[in-house]
Design a binder for these strands. Structure first.
Lengths: 128, 128
DNA sequence: GTTTGTGCAAATATTTTGCACTTGA
DNA sequence: TCAAGTGCAAAATATTTGCACAAAC
């Protein structure tokens, strides 16, 4: 079903080089800088596939851009992102998970899903 | 600073006609059906202004479209949206608010903001 | 060898913007 | 009057897709 190509290997590898979320464009640039010539459409297609198989996290910024990152953990989790430097912390929130499920049920909703992202300014950036 | 024009009045009025979230496009169509000829750009500009002054709620769908709705309540709150019929329930969550603030602080982040949306299938749609 | 992936360029879709013209206060 | 608002069409953004070609398995 899924073939390992030079392009996909390079994308996966590049994704592993940092912990930060990056856009398809940034990834494409990084690949170029690395000497890998890969079409932007291919990057999008690869990221889409990786997101689908949950091998990368997807984060939607306020201005509608998708950012991708190789997952550190496999389970469901959320993120706390520094709005200044982009540093990311992975969060797991039994509290909110429970809250979300409860609120949904209270209103007679089934199959609750939730989107939760936290944004703030990290310690380093506050000082700067 | 802010002038009341025929266009803005019509947009505001049309927003009040339903409780559902609608896109700029849908609003524009509804206005047309009503006999009001208003430029799409004007609709966008009006909605942007209304969102800024918090007179409408903005919801970002998974596919990156902005939906708007006249606020029922003034304060900060979240939504539970039916993925099938679009019915919306406004939620206020002291629990999550507190959780978000706490998580942020624990990681040394300041000025925490959060994005939280719940999606599910409502009772009516489950039966159907 | 056949099916899946790739590259390119063109297409989509949504939202924004420049600019000349209107209009509300 | 005259700053603020509007309309239109063009631009900007982010992502997707058609199709001919290349490459995994």
């Amino acid at each position: 079903m899924r073939r390992m190509t030079r392009q996909r290997a390079a994308i996966w590898d590049t994704l592993g080089q940092t912990d930060e979320f990056r856009s398809a464009q940034q990834l494409h640039d990084a690949l170029g800088a690395r000497g890998e010539s890969i079409g932007l459409a291919t990057v999008y297609r690869a990221l889409q596939a990786l997101a689908e198989s949950e091998d990368v996290d997807v984060l939607r910024t306020a201005d509608g851009e998708n950012l991708f990152r190789r997952c550190a953990r496999r389970e469901h989790h959320h993120h706390l992102v520094c709005r200044s430097c982009g540093r990311t912390v992975e969060i797991d929130g039994p509290t909110v998970e429970a809250w979300a499920a409860l609120v949904g049920e209270n209103h007679g909703f089934r199959d609750i899903e939730h989107t939760i992202e936290l944004f703030g300014t990290c310690e380093t950036c506050v000082q700067a």
